[in-house]
Amino acid sequence: MEKIDPTFIREVAQISGTIPSRCYNCSACTSGCQFAHIMDKKPHEIIRLVQIGLKNEALAASGPWICVGCNTCSMECPNAIDIPAVMDAIRAMAIAKGEIPEKDIYNFHKEILGSIKRYGRTHKLEIMMRFKLVSRDFFSDMDLGVRMLSRRKLHILPSRIKGVRDVRNLFKKVG
């Protein structure tokens, strides 16, 4: 039996600054989304789950993690709902709950942030290597990595900023 959490929508509205109860489920958002077909719950379904209080289902969905925040959907939405902001809110709740449905995407973001924390900027080569290590997927992009290195798209050495301590201090929460 699905558990309905009547306060879920209020929580999402507060974190996202948008009002999901305005959605009339036309699914224009989903039609515009290029990645909806690889989401288990599509953008309009996510909004619907929020509307009717199915929090556990929303937090367990891959949709918010696949979402790249391109804003295509929110441009389509006749009710000006900030759909990616809802995705952000759901992701934040899933992280807070410690149950992350798409670990590899989470790890990717963590690698980016790790790089910013270490250098103040992103170091693409290190991110790619570490991501591949964490996701134990070493060979899939080997050929691409070599091609990018030979075209000097991936730098061997990171550039580190002087104020890296300032930046590190911002990372209290994410670790």
Partner: peptide, 18 residues
């Protein structure tokens, strides 16, 4: 001088305040 990364989609994805 000494600019830092804007956080791109990653900071935005997992920590709004950051």
């Amino acid at each position: 001088p000494d600019w830092n990364c804007c956080g791109s989609s990653s900071a935005h994805s997992i920590d709004q305040e950051l």
